[in-house]
Amino acid sequence: MIFVIAANELRRMFYSPLAWFILAMLLLIEGLLFLVFIETFLTQVQPRFAGIDGAPGVTDSVISPLFLWAGVLMLGVMPLLTMRLFSEERARQTLVLLRSAPLSTTQMVLGKFFGLLGFILAMLALILLMPLALAPFTSLDWGKLLSGALGLFLLSASFGAAGLYLSTLTAQPTIAAVSSFGLLLFLVVLYLSGSSPGTASELFVYLSHFGHFIAFLEGLFDTRHLSYYLLFIAAFLILAVRRLDNETLNR
């Protein structure tokens, strides 16, 4: 049942021009960045480190920044994708369809979330094509590539879970988008203030997404970072379920 909703959600995303525009813009920007990083690598990094053992390779100087930037772009992209999940249903009064069907609220929320994950996977697959295009010509650090991709996936999924919750709060997609963008930016600010010299705060860095994302980009697969994302996602999904359940009680 969850997958029925997820499939429908994914299909409807691709029916809207928004999804295609987002994919197009994302690829355009990532493509340009990719070129810039390669250019820098070829003209500046490679000549300097040629022949030195343990020097940063192509994975470090091209792929990791590419993923990092993809994560930054997701700050803008995910709110646009999540804003319609529940607020549009509410604005169009289509939530009744799911509510009257023999479904639990958890199934409803998970269905929507998995649909979103499907879209994230599609974006990730397209972004991954760029580093893969390098594979025939150089040796890539596959471990780092995979951990970076996993990190990007978890980062986007956690953005998505937060956006999903915020979209259950309002009937106006724009408000949902703006508020989730605000929340995500706030977490970035936490990271910046937590990691800036002088005011460094372990807690702030821990709370923000990017602290954990960077570990993944460095090729560090640590269950602590994994569990941060899983907890973050679970927390917001549970909040969404509670919020929707509450609504039938006191509207």
Binding site: V4, I5, Y15, Q93, T94, V96, S100, A101, P102
Partner: peptide, 30 residues
Amino acid sequence: KRHIGYLPEQPPLYRDLTVREYLRYCARLH
């Protein structure tokens, strides 16, 4: 809820689906 079919005041329609797609989805949901 399996035994209920409900048409609210405002029909819960996804305007971006065709009639057939929409009904297929509703059937699966139920």
